[in-house]
């Protein structure tokens, strides 16, 4: 083997080792955790007992949170898709000379602390805040209705936090579309709506797929929004896992729940990619 051929191995080695040691192997440890004897504790130590019942326990104990996570994340992703598509479309085709500025505005929140921004939502949605007052005034909310500690606040927070992850891939795929294609569709008797549905939308599918994945996956595992903007009634699976580690030290249950979440997400993603892939061909 020549030196040139070996170069590739040397270049990839450090990254491969790092990801292998600290990303891939930990999954194995997690899997081992999920099969721990639940009697173990931080003090007495843990041992693998191949107790598959941990999974059944996890699903029984945390079923509502698990279900709620997927439901919130799915809804937040759908809202992100609509809002993100409008914004990405506006930047790509309508912003003109303001295009770069608008892109910067999309990226900028990325660089401002996630937690600090989420806390500021707490302020915006506060019980005596402007939004709640207005909604009460127009009777969308009742006299003492509130937004904080409701699913609305948690989902709004999720939408807000992961919107840039939706906009950027959407913009990247929309930007590549040749504007003349849409004009050609118009020339060939397609109404603007049909032109969009038959030309723009199918061509932006890679962005739609990437954006929904990048939004859904982190949203499903998130617990910050549920914690800061919600109440115990909005707890998501992330909250449960976090508490199992830090409060109870129940590594077996935490592991089992993490693995369950991962399996559900991987399955959902695979089904989604397959369906999105065939739609793209239509």
């Amino acid at each position: 083997m020549t030196g040139r051929k070996l170069t590739g191995y040397w270049l990839i080695l450090p990254a491969a080792l790092w990801l292998g040691l600290f990303f891939a192997i930990p999954f194995y440890s997690l899997l081992a955790n999920s099969l721990y004897d639940p009697e173990g504790s931080v003090l007495t130590g843990y041992h693998v007992s191949y107790r598959f019942a941990n999974f059944a326990d996890a699903i029984r104990d945390s079923g509502p949170e698990l279900w709620r996570s997927l439901w919130y994340a799915g809804l937040a992703t759908a809202i992100c898709l609509v809002l993100g598509y409008v914004l990405a479309y506006a930047i790509a085709f309508k912003a003109g000379k303001w295009r770069n500025l608008m892109l910067v505005l999309v990226i900028a929140p990325f660089f401002t602390s996630f937690l600090v921004r989420t806390l500021s939502w707490k302020l915006i949605l506060a019980d005596d805040g402007f939004i709640v007052d207005t909604l009460r005034f127009v009777h969308i909310l009742g006299e003492d209705g509130r937004l904080l500690a409701t699913p609305v606040a948690v989902i709004a927070g999720l939408v807000y936090n992961f919107l840039p992850f939706m906009v950027l891939p959407l913009y990247a795929s929309l930007e590549k579309i040749d504007g003349r294609l849409v004009e050609a569709a118009g020339d060939l008797y397609a109404s603007p709506l049909r032109g969009f549905l038959k030309v723009t939308l199918p061509l932006s599918m890679p962005g739609v797929v990437a954006g929904t994945l990048l939004t859904f996956i982190p949203a499903a595992g998130d617990y910050i929004n549920a914690q800061l903007l919600g109440s115990p009634n909005q707890r998501m699976v992330g909250n449960v896992i976090q508490d199992l580690y830090t409060d109870t030290g129940d590594f077996a249950a935490a592991g089992a729940l993490s693995v369950t979440l991962m399996v559900i997400i991987v399955a959902a993603v695979l089904v989604y990619i397959r369906r999105a892939g065939t739609e793209e061909l239509l």
Binding site: P26, L30, I217, I241, S258, L261
Partner: peptide, 8 residues
């Protein structure tokens, strides 16, 4: 999800 990577 971060929570899974973190727990692992």
């Amino acid at each position: 999800p971060e929570i899974v990577m973190g727990s692992s």
